[in-house]
Amino acid sequence: MILAPHEPSAAQRRREAYRRRQTVTSVLVAAASTAALGTLLVVAVTGAPGWDRVRRSFADPAIARDALPEVLAGLWLNVRLLFCCAAGALLLGLLVAILRTLRGPVFFPVRALAAGYTYTFRGLPLIIVLYVLTLGVPGLRLAGMPPVLVLGGLALVLTYGGYLAEVFRAGIESVHPSQLAAARSLGLSYRQTMRHVVLPQAVRRVAPPLLNDVVALQKDVGLVSLAGPIDAVRAAQIATAETFNYTPYIVAGALFVLLAIPLIAVTDWVTLRAARRQERG
């Protein structure tokens, strides 16, 4: 539709002028308060009596430069683990969530097993799962034992799979029963209804909380270093022990934040899109 040219009335022009003035005022106030708070923070931190010592032991540029290659190499392990564990945990979570929705007496043991899994692994601290899998299981000395890295990844997948399963299940249950009725009335079987009608809607709806859990997983993948493999945090720790300076930790922390930013941005974007869809629908 093409809008016909419209000459705003005097009242509308006055309103618009007023709103423009309001906008300018708002921007000025925001800038002033940001500057005031920033100044206050800088003065408080740099004016502290121990600031020089802290700066030397936490923000030494030369030590940061030296530590960077090792920390980066460690971070590469984090990234690889994150991708594999996120994929594994998402798949496991989805599978468990589907198993929990199966009906009929035949599936009772499957349902019970799936429910038991989510209860156990949501309750169990990740560190304990890691120790049992990376230290306990190799102790069995079975043939064909996978390397510690794989076992550590498995601990992450098992723990996060429990959380993700519940998120998926919430999504499945949020699909209105009338959608099931419509699908079944068309002759679709229960499986076809899940596959083509329920799951696509459920996954879309819970994409933001799923991604949020993946952001949390990103920080926890580093815990496999407890079993030996050297990730970014462990590399920073080693560098720190060599120089008696904490700067490598700051380097690792900054890298983690940089790594998280794209993931968080994607999460926000997906959330925004889901909210818009909700509004339209």
């Binding site: 009338s178 959608q179 009725a181 419509a182 699908a183 079944r184 068309l186 002759g187 679709l188 629908g281």
Partner: peptide, 18 residues
């Protein structure tokens, strides 16, 4: 499922797949 294939149903709230 076999019965429902022979019957078409239309609902008050449309129930299209969004």
């Amino acid at each position: 499922d076999r019965v429902r294939r022979r019957i078409g149903m239309v609902f008050q709230s449309y129930n299209l797949f969004p």
